[in-house]
Amino acid sequence: MTVDKSKKKINFEKILTTELVNHLEIVFQPIYSLSKKKNVAYEILSRFCKEELKTLSTLEIIEILEKIEQIHILDFLILEKSKKYLNKKDLKICINLSPKTIVREDFLEKFNFSKNELKNLEIEITERGELNYTELMYKFLKLKELGIKVVMDDFPIGGSNLENLLKTYINTVKIDRGLIKYLSSDKGKIIYKSIVRFLKELGSEITAEGVETIEELEFIRSIDVDLVQGYYIGKPIGEEEFIKL
């Protein structure tokens, strides 16, 4: 039984590394500007299309890749896939990258894009585990010099906190979708509004994630949030449908 499990693990890790490109699909979820009243960006999300990986969630696969120190393979694949969508005027493409990928020595070498492509690229990070902030800050500064905006995702639940926000060159923040469900209570609304006010005072651009109802959208609109993302705005769509747009 142990041998079988070991073989299964080896095969699984092989899929996640040498064969990952054959298992990966990307989808696009819109990000809506409340002031411009239109979609101004699309976030690229990973989907795994082969049977071997369908038993696991995307988050579980990402966690496995980080554990076996192979998350950069997925990140660099998505970065490469994003390139052909970065030449559209006034349309931003957001991709999620692991801090482990960003601190790699070869990270900046992957951005052999044109100036126009770089200005349409946004990078989101979610903090997980021990981070080398000195190296991260250096990379963020270099990305800023290239014209790329860095977004802190899942604030304040995904490991993000005030100290980490102040340490880095980040001025755009996504509020974790987990907080939206508490808007049904007065206390939840007070907490959400306080987070938005706090981030605004820091000069942050704010995206509300996980908006799924008109009531949530109207509340978010009333408290000066900049951008909205969630199923009420639009569900993720495949590449073919995105190209038609």
Rank of each mutant, 00 (worst) to 15 (best):
Leu217Asn: 02
Glu205Asp: 12
Glu215Phe: 11
Ile243Val: 15
Thr213Leu: 07
Ala208Ile: 09
Ala208Thr: 07
Glu239Gly: 06
Glu212Gln: 15
Ile243Pro: 07
Leu217Glu: 11
Ser204Ile: 05
Glu201Asn: 14
Gly210Tyr: 05
Asp226Asn: 14
Glu239Tyr: 03
Ile206Asn: 04
Arg221Cys: 05
Ile220Ala: 06
Gly230Gln: 10
Leu202Trp: 13
Asp226Trp: 09
Thr213Tyr: 13
Val228Met: 02
Gly210Ile: 08
Ile243Trp: 09
Ile233Met: 06
Gln229Met: 01
Glu212Leu: 13
Lys244Trp: 03
Thr207Gly: 05
Ala208Gly: 08
Val228Thr: 04
Val211Tyr: 14
Val225Gln: 02
Tyr231Asn: 13
Ile223Cys: 10
Leu217Phe: 14
Ala208Trp: 14
Ile243Thr: 08
Phe219Val: 06
Glu215Trp: 12
Gly238Asn: 08
Val211Met: 10
Gly210Val: 03
Glu216His: 01
Glu205Phe: 11
Ala208Pro: 13
Ile233Tyr: 02
Asp224His: 12
Ile237Phe: 00
Glu209Pro: 08
Val225Trp: 05
Val228Glu: 06
Phe219Pro: 01
Gly238Cys: 02
Ile214Leu: 15
Lys235Ser: 09
Glu205Gly: 12
Ile237Tyr: 00
Gly210Pro: 12
Asp224Ala: 12
Glu212Cys: 14
Glu218Gly: 03
Ile243Leu: 12
Glu205Thr: 12
Gly234Arg: 01
Lys244Pro: 05
Glu216Gly: 05
Ile233Glu: 05
Ser222Tyr: 00
Thr213Gln: 05
Ile206Thr: 03
Leu227Glu: 06
Pro236His: 00
Glu212Tyr: 15
Lys244Asn: 10
Asp224Gly: 10
Tyr232Pro: 08
Lys244Leu: 13
Leu217Asp: 08
Phe219Met: 08
Glu212Trp: 15
Gln229Phe: 00
Glu205His: 13
Ala208His: 12
Tyr232Arg: 03
Glu209Thr: 05
Gln229Asn: 00
Ile233Thr: 01
Glu216Gln: 15
Leu227Asn: 06
Ile233Gln: 05
Ile220Arg: 07
Glu201Trp: 11
Gly203Tyr: 12
Lys235His: 06
Glu209Asp: 14
Glu240Asp: 13
Ala208Gln: 11
Glu241Pro: 00
Leu227Thr: 00
Glu218Ser: 14
Ile233Trp: 10
Ala208Asp: 10
Lys235Cys: 10
Ile223Asn: 04
Leu217Ser: 02
Ile223Gln: 01
Gly210Phe: 05
Glu212His: 13
Ser204His: 15
Tyr231Ile: 11
Asp224Met: 10
Glu209Asn: 07
Ile220Phe: 05
Ala208Met: 08
Glu239Cys: 01
Lys235Val: 03
Val228Leu: 04
Ile243Gly: 08
Ile220Ser: 07
Gly238Glu: 09
Arg221Ser: 11
Lys244Ile: 11
Glu218Ala: 06
Glu216Asp: 07
Lys235Gly: 02
Ile214Phe: 15
Tyr232Val: 04
Ile223Lys: 03
Glu218Val: 01
Glu241Gln: 07
Ile206Trp: 06
Tyr231Asp: 09
